[in-house]
Amino acid sequence: MSKSGFWHDVKKYRALLLMLAPAVLFFLLFAYVPMAGIVLAFKQYNYSDGIFASPWNGLNNFRFFFESGDAWRVTRNTALYNLAFILVNNLLQIVAAILLFEVAGKWFRKITQSILFLPYFISWVVVGAIAYNMFNYNVGTINVALEWLGFAKIDIYNTASYWPFILVAVTAWKALGYGTIMYLAAITSIDTEMYEAAEIDGANIFQRIFKITIPNLMPTLIILVLLAIGNIFRGDFGMFYNMIGNNSMLFSATDVIDTFVFRSLTTNNEIGMSAAAGFYQSILGFATILLANYAVRKYDKDRALF
């Protein structure tokens, strides 16, 4: 393109470009400039020199991160938690959506849907308060119930092995309504003629679910799962932080990359190492999302992200 053509276009679209300017500036400042800050991962940061003048230290930050053993622990936790979330959440949501669609009367469907969706609207801080209410050693409802049934109390906040189950359950609880509504929308869009034809052919309701509903849900499920796998190295900081906080008793089972980076930055002030860990996460995340998108593209070109 010739230069004069370019400036001609700039003039032609100046109003549209001006309207885009705030958003462009916003993402430049809050997304692209920090990308340049990745150099921090290769530096021995000190406040007086700042980001760009601090001395280089090669791969020392990465070496420190990997040799401490933290890298493997937090990467494994992040990936395994996300896999468990994907599996449990989608399974529950599909079952709930099918049951709501197939059996429920209209009022029952509406009320149930509203109740299931409620947890989506509260902050993770409030979920943290609910967890405290249930899991506290002295006054928690779980221990109240255990004592009432004649069992010994359990010290949930000091026992790491309970937490993978708790975190999966809490995530499923919060996401249930959201996902159920999405799958319900997908079921509702299935051509009703298929059901009518199946009924005429004498299919029972279970055959209809397994031969029509579930196969028709597969495209939605596969896309959602692939996209979720693309984000498998991104931990839900809000959830982990409000459920676990700074309770180091639980870190072996609950520390994910995001909480590790946050703690290294704010508590330990290890700028270089936390930047290295963050960069490592960004690269892993970028690679998996490209792979996931490639897979989506193979499966259904129109649903690919890009």
Binding site: Y32, P34, A36, I271, A275
Partner: peptide
């Protein structure tokens, strides 16, 4: 692109 790749928490926080 900003949803695919980012600089991570630390550079953003410092900025």
């Amino acid at each position: 692109f900003t949803t695919l790749f980012n600089g991570g928490l630390v550079p953003w926080y410092l900025m």
